[in-house]
Design a protein around this nucleic acid. Structure first.
Length: 583
RNA sequence: GCGCUUGUAGCUCAGAGGAUAGAGCGCUGCCCUGCGGAGGCAGAGGUCGUGAGUUCGAAUCUCGCCAAGCGCGCCA
């Protein structure tokens, strides 16, 4: 069983001290306060600290310093398992309680990490894992969470802006799995609607043009060069069989359908392939059209109608989202009788929660969809599903630059930088790291020149180099037939050795935090800190020593290096990055 | 105009109401007789957009103002 986050033990220590103080009548409290435990920035303040006495001072009218003394005394008396990691418990003005970990306990964690192996960082399922507010408690097997992301219309390739959401979603899925959730990664294929219609007709026009016909592009046509290539491929494979139907005839419309199906399949295939280049994969590709075939569209809208959320106005059918707090109502069925994209989305979310029974759903949308969050939440609520169970993350815009020139991303003109180009230029790992190192809620600037120029000085290489160094040491030890399995970890007394262990032990806590807040970007910063701790250890502590007197220390340090490698691999894996043995 | 997001070092960005605000890049100066120098150490560089408020305590919470991006279709 991999170790649980240490910070939970510290919280338990504090809360049982509060309980004991209440039992003894020292502390008079109606309710148990929220206990905040943090990592002090200043190492002099120990490994963990709580400000609880300060927070309680007002309610209890006890001087916070005195309260801290009292609680610290209870904590010192605690003899439970959660106390075993903690050495000193000290009080600091104006009312903090500081905890310091025992050296020998830290040393023993090297063995704990080695035993946990690839499972290090995983959390027990059902232990409050997963997004906040997602309602259902995981019954034994962990909560079932769907994360739906990318979901680019298959009218063109994935570009840089989408890539940000792709990286975010795949890393988040990894994190949620580590936290004990059952995760489904899903891509929603918008294979219905007017955008697809324009796409189909664009391919048809290019197809006819490839045979020299003077076929006009449709009014909202897709002008990108990739459409020409796609049409050419179809022309090569299918020949002239779509060529001779007069426009407007039934046969022509049938040809558009068929050529549309072919080109959509090709496009989805390309999207899948491009995403695969940066390690983004899906468990399920969900078809929008299937919602209409399977009857879920009718069921979902029927449910809204029963509850009085739908009304017919100006020839169209409206969802009265203002009844549920939205700013304006939204059309679900046009006066033409065609359902809107929003109608599909309602049915889709009915399918996610009711049809497939997910406990929690995370959607990752681009900034251009942020205006749709309130109506989606309202729709879910209207379906009698707690809106808490739906989290919509907005990945903000990526503005592209080449040098100082801004590149506008527009599918219509075909003027955009694709995921493929990006991956070819900067590589999978740098691409992932670059996007992961930033919170998705801020707009970011992506300078392609800079990304290329920086690639050898990129933080990603700092982290991967640390791992490669690490692997180099272990490989050398194996070459020399050194067996370190009997190493004595109590010899690891150098401050840089203990600092490395401390850094390693942050991972479980980080996984827990990231799963709750759905913020995987902390991983990037964590790996930097881990790498810094490792490089410092490397600088200060010779691992494989030629001096026979150091033989025992060598074995102990090899154990430390081995456990550090486990943590490097695990965190790089969560980020979807490679952990290279050499560079 | 209204809504969402954002303003932190020269640049790109981290910072679960706490103690002296951090990292990478860039800049200055040091450190290899040995496991990979894609490394380590030290330094310069900040009125955390701005003005109020809440609090024992604010980069963090609330409000105003300024600035930027996005959104506000019977498009998706």
């Amino acid at each position: 069983m991999p170790p649980a986050p240490l910070i939970d033990d510290i919280r338990r220590l504090v809360s049982s001290a509060v309980e004991a103080a209440r039992r003894d009548g020292v502390l008079r409290l109606e309710t148990m306060p929220e206990i905040q435990v943090e990592h002090p920035g200043n190492p002099e303040h120990g490994d963990f600290a709580t400000n609880l006495p300060l927070r309680l001072a007002r309610a209890t009218r006890i001087n916070p310093l005195e309260l801290a003394q009292t609680l610290a005394e209870y904590i010192r008396k605690n003899e439970g398992v959660e106390r075993e990691a903690v050495g000193s418990v000290e009080v600091a003005a104006p009312g903090f309680i500081n905890f310091r970990l025992k050296d020998d306990w830290l040393q023993r964690q090297v063995e704990v990490v080695r035993q946990a192996g690839a499972a290090f960082g995983n959390l027990a399922s059902g232990a409050g894992a997963g997004p906040d507010g997602a309602g259902a408690e995981g019954a034994g097997g962990g909560r079932r969470v769907m994360i739906e992301f990318v979901s680019v219309n298959p009218t063109g390739p994935v570009h840089v802006g989408h890539t940000r959401g792709a990286v975010l979603g795949s890393a988040l899925a990894n994190v949620l799995e580590a936290a004990g959730c059952q995760v489904t990664r899903e891509y929603y294929v918008n294979d219905a609607g007017s955008q697809m219609e324009a796409f189909y007709r664009s391919v048809m026009a290019r197809y006819r043009q490839s045979f020299g016909q003077d076929a006009p592009m449709p009014p909202n046509g897709y002008m990108g060069e990739y459409i020409v290539e796609l049409a050419q491929e179809i022309a090569d494979a299918e020949g002239e069989r779509f060529l001779n139907q007069p426009p407007g005839s039934d046969a022509y419309e049938q040809a558009v359908r068929e050529i549309g199906d072919l080109s959509r399949e090709k496009m989805v295939g390309l999207i899948r392939e491009d995403l695969g280049r940066i390690g983004v994969e899906f468990d399920n590709w969900f078809s929008e059209r299937s919602l209409y075939v399977g009857g879920e569209y009718d069921t979902a809208l029927g449910r809204l109608r029963e509850k009085g959320y739908l009304s017919q106005r100006e020839e169209a059918l409206w969802f009265n989202s203002t009844m549920l707090g939205d700013e304006k109502d939204n059309v679900v069925v046009r006066s033409s009788g065609e359902p809107t994209y929003f109608a599909s989305d309602i049915a889709y979310h009915y399918n996610k929660f009711v049809g497939r029974g997910y406990d929690a759903v995370v959607n990752i949308w681009g900034a251009d969809h942020q205006g749709h969050v309130p109506r989606m939440k309202a729709a879910v609520e209207g379906l009698d599903i707690s809106p808490e169970r739906l989290t919509i993350l907005i990945a903000q815009m990526v503005t592209l630059k080449r040098g100082s020139e801004v590149v506008r991303a527009s599918k219509r003109t075909g003027d955009f930088v694709t995921l493929r180009e990006l991956a070819d230029e900067v590589g999978r790992d740098a691409c992932r790291y670059f996007f992961l190192a930033r919170t998705p809620s801020t707009q970011m600037e992506f300078d392609l020149e800079l990304a290329k120029k920086e690639s050898s000085e990129n933080p990603v290489y700092y982290v991967q180099y640390a791992h490669a160094r690490n692997a180099g040491i272990l490989n050398l030890a194996r070459e020399r037939d050194i067996d370190w399995s009997g190493g004595d970890v109590s010899l690891l007394n150098d401050p840089s050795e203990l600092a490395l262990v401390r850094a390693m032990l942050r991972l479980p806590e980080l996984v827990q935090q990231m799963a709750r807040t759905l913020e995987p970007h902390h991983l990037a910063h964590f790996t930097m800190e881990l790498a810094t701790a490792f490089h410092l250890f490397y600088e200060n502590c010779r691992v494989i020593s030629a001096n026979p007197e150091d033989a025992d220390v060598t074995l102990a340090r090899l154990k430390l290096v081995e456990s550090a490698q486990i943590v490097f691999r695990r965190s790089l894996e969560l980020m979807g990055m490679d952990a290279p043995e050499r560079m």
